[in-house]
């Protein structure tokens, strides 16, 4: 039986983690590799690095962080943020990323998603969608942290991106992100039910019940969260135990590949 994935997400800027993780045993809490190792040990099912480096010139710091992580953590790693060219994707994959998440570039140039899928395989291409409610039961696609309204309908966009070659959708509710009020379950379900590829729910997790709701009611295949894990409110093991108690299949084995 396929297990539901729990994916911690780290914001990386100029090669350093921005929102610190409060793990007691970290020597350098700003080092993405140290944090990746901690999550690897804790049994996270995948990791996500979101690069928020402002300038494209500083991207080498990201490749370095990805490559050092891949040397030590033998688990799936998705990297997103600032992916603009096929060469960006190739460099991330060579550094050790398994999947690459595309957001703004997909909106600017939808054909880029098809090109990426043809070149690297659909399963490597994650399309990230930042969605905001625009009317009852309707959500729009936004970019630039929710500031820029693209005018696209989120459900239609998800279907179009799947047809174009996305192997997975990373769906973030801009209304809920950072609130701790829980996923936008109606949004998650609308998209998960509309596409044939897996959907990762993101944005708003504050309690372990929210994770359950994202899967059970939102029909997501995976849940992504940042602060509830980073700030030590809940451990990966607690999250998995909670999902399991709700009847959702999770992988219980701890990771520990990083040693």
């Amino acid at each position: 039986m396929l297990r539901v994935r729990i994916i911690p997400c780290l914001d990386v800027k100029d090669g350093r983690v921005v929102k610190g993780v409060r793990f007691v045993d970290l020597v350098d809490a700003g080092d993405p590799v140290e944090q990746a190792r901690a999550y690897d040990k804790a049994g996270a099912d995948e990791l996500c690095f979101l690069d928020i480096t402002a300038s494209h010139e500083n991207r080498d710091t990201l490749f370095d962080a990805v490559s050092r992580t891949a040397e030590q953590c033998f688990m799936p790693l998705t990297v997103g943020g600032g992916v603009r060219t096929l060469e960006d994707i190739r460099k991330l994959l060579l550094a050790g990323a398994d999947k690459v998440s595309i957001n703004t570039t997909a909106v600017k140039n939808p054909a880029f998603v098809s090109q990426a899928a043809e070149k690297f395989g659909r399963q490597l291409v994650v399309v990230a969608i930042d969605a905001k409610q625009v009317a009852h039961g309707r959500w729009g696609v936004f970019t630039h942290g929710g500031r820029n309204d693209t005018g696209l309908d989120a459900v239609e966009w998800a279907k179009r991106m799947t047809a174009a070659g996305a192997g997975e959708i990373l769906l973030t509710s801009m209304d809920r992100d950072g609130t701790g009020d829980g996923f936008d379950v109606a949004l998650t379900r609308a998209i998960a039910d509309a596409v044939t590829v897996p959907v990762i729910a993101s944005g708003g997790v504050g309690t372990l019940d929210h994770l359950v709701a994202g899967i059970r009611d939102g029909h997501a295949s995976a849940v992504l969260a940042a602060s509830i894990f980073h700030f030590g409110r809940f451990s990966i093991a607690e999250a998995k135990a909670h999902l399991k108690a709700a009847g959702i299949p999770v992988r219980e084995a701890a990771g520990r590949s990083g040693g």
């Binding site: 039986m1 396929l2 297990r3 539901v4 994935r5 099912d45 995948e46 688990m75 799936p76 659909r122 399963q123 192997g167 997975e168 044939t196 590829v197 897996p198 295949s221 995976a222 992988r251 084995a253």
Partner: peptide
């Protein structure tokens, strides 16, 4: 079910397969 088949799924090996020695029956793999 969603395609791609993505994530950790239980792997059931035939008894005596050397590559699976020491792994639990149904050990999830990525």
């Amino acid at each position: 079910l969603k395609v791609p088949h993505m994530g950790w799924n239980d792997v059931t090996a035939r008894p005596g397969e050397a590559l699976f020695e020491g792994l639990a029956a149904g050990e999830p793999m990525y």
